[in-house]
């Protein structure tokens, strides 16, 4: 399609085409069309000239460089970031280790507690066994009731051999222990 200069005020696509031509972004065939139109249309040439001039004026814009410290400051920041990352990694590892240790501790039983628990257990067992096997005290007292009743006589006699002799002779069977004074 031939490009006509009267497209200029109406068609934004026409300006797009001109700008793309100036930017070297048009395909070869389209670029040739624009060139043909420019060669025969002074108004279009003026349009392109103004667009181009405004664009070239942008060369006046300052292009400030980064300050002298930019590079060193940036790299120093990166080192801090790197260090922070490494530190964070170390802290993570340390936290993991601490967690594992505390987990192990959480389930570990200190030796002192273990020994104490063992002693208590043995004591309880011993008590239980003793309760089951031992005779009640009252039974023991009943067995020795006769002895207990004559304990004062036995103290007065004071000699087991003499007692046995008296028993053989039947003296003790008849004798009542004296009344306490």
């Amino acid at each position: 399609m031939a490009i006509m200069s009267d497209e200029i005020p109406q068609s934004p696509t026409f300006t797009e085409k001109l700008v793309a031509y100036l930017d070297g972004e048009l395909p070869e065939a389209a670029a040739r069309e624009v060139e043909q139109a420019l060669s025969s249309d002074p108004a279009m040439r003026a349009e392109v000239e103004q667009l181009n001039r405004a664009w070239e004026l942008l060369d006046l814009l300052p292009r400030p460089n980064a300050s002298g410290e930019f590079s060193s400051r940036t790299l120093a920041t990166l080192q801090v970031v790197d260090g922070t990352t490494e530190l964070a990694a170390e802290q993570e590892i340390a936290a993991t280790v601490a967690f594992e240790t505390s987990s192990q501790r959480r389930f570990a039983v200190p030796p002192l507690v273990a020994w104490s628990a063992g002693l208590v257990l043995v004591s309880v067992l011993g008590f239980a066994v003793g309760r089951m096997t031992a005779r009640p005290n009252s039974d023991v007292w009943l067995d020795d009731l006769t002895l207990i009743e004559h304990i004062d006589v036995y103290h007065e006699i004071g000699d087991a051999e003499f007692l046995r002799d008296l028993k053989q002779r039947g003296v003790l069977d008849e004798r009542r222990p004296p009344e306490p004074r």
């Binding site: 934004p12 300006t15 797009e16 700008v19 793309a20 930017d23 972004e25 103004q50 667009l51 001039r53 405004a54 664009w55 004026l57 942008l58």
Partner: peptide, 20 residues
């Protein structure tokens, strides 16, 4: 981008044209 740059260059021309 083509449309964007076209409009941008039109605006620049309109702004700067009085000083050409």
């Amino acid at each position: 981008v083509k449309s964007l740059l076209s409009r941008a260059r039109e605006n620049l021309r309109a702004y700067l044209e009085p000083f050409f």
